[in-house]
Computed example of a mutant assay.
Amino acid sequence: MMVPADSAAFERPVRYWHGTRASLKRGDALLARSVTGTPRTRALMYPGVAPPAESADWVYVTTRHKFAWMHAFYSGADGDPIVLLVEPDETLERDPEYSARMQAFRCRSAQVILVDTTPAITEEEAASGWASVDGS
């Protein structure tokens, strides 16, 4: 697994996760919304408030498995929530819109390594927000 350039402290391979409801399988490319034409869905996670900035030119990933599940539940697309273990491309960088504690990153594309269909959190925990998954 890829390690971000600014993360010399990592001593083991890092796993990157992406939560979605898209129908993807192992080997598929995970591409930015500007490439796929997928509508923005992140606003569903933040009812009544402006969500953090998000560019259609990036794929967003996290090292927090439960945080990826939270995103999967609120992706807004049709289909069942899934979490993808992905290999980000060489453009991987820390997402400036999130604190380091949330372990959020972005890249231009990623390859699906594994599809996880067994939720690590409940939909109720996802609805409770970040505090419910902070221990992941």
Rank of each mutant, 00 (worst) to 15 (best):
M1K: 03
M2T: 12
A8I: 08
A9R: 14
F10A: 13
E11W: 04
R15G: 05
R15H: 11
Y16H: 15
H18E: 11
H18M: 13
H18I: 13
T20Q: 07
T20M: 08
R21S: 10
A22L: 13
L24N: 04
L24Y: 14
K25A: 09
R26D: 11
G27L: 06
D28Q: 10
L31N: 05
A32H: 04
A32V: 06
R33K: 13
R33T: 13
S34Y: 08
G37E: 11
R40E: 15
R40F: 07
T41G: 15
R42Y: 12
R42F: 01
R42C: 03
A43H: 13
L44I: 09
L44S: 08
L44D: 04
L44R: 14
Y46E: 13
P47T: 02
P47E: 01
P47Q: 01
P47K: 01
A50C: 06
P52S: 02
A56H: 05
A56M: 03
A56Y: 00
D57R: 14
D57F: 05
D57L: 09
W58P: 01
V59M: 03
Y60N: 04
Y60K: 01
Y60A: 02
T62M: 09
H65E: 13
H65R: 15
H65N: 02
K66M: 07
A68T: 07
W69F: 05
W69M: 01
M70H: 06
M70V: 02
H71A: 10
F73Y: 15
F73L: 05
Y74T: 06
Y74I: 00
Y74W: 14
G76M: 07
G76S: 10
A77T: 00
D78Y: 03
D78I: 02
D78Q: 05
D78C: 04
D78K: 09
G79S: 11
D80L: 10
D80S: 11
P81R: 06
I82M: 08
V83Q: 03
V83G: 01
L84G: 14
L85V: 15
V86G: 12
E87G: 00
E87H: 10
D89I: 08
E90H: 07
E90K: 06
E93W: 00
E93F: 01
P96Q: 06
P96W: 02
P96K: 05
E97D: 10
Y98G: 00
Y98T: 04
Y98K: 02
Q103T: 04
Q103E: 12
R106Q: 10
R108S: 11
S109Y: 03
A110D: 06
A110Y: 05
A110M: 08
Q111Y: 06
V112R: 02
V112E: 08
V112N: 08
L114D: 13
L114C: 10
V115A: 02
V115D: 07
D116W: 00
T117C: 07
T117V: 13
P119K: 10
A120Y: 00
E123Q: 13
E124R: 08
E125A: 08
A126F: 06
A127P: 05
S128C: 08
S128I: 00
G129C: 08
G129W: 01
G129T: 01
G129V: 12
G129L: 03
W130R: 11
A131L: 05
A131V: 09
V133N: 03
V133H: 00
D134P: 00
S136G: 13
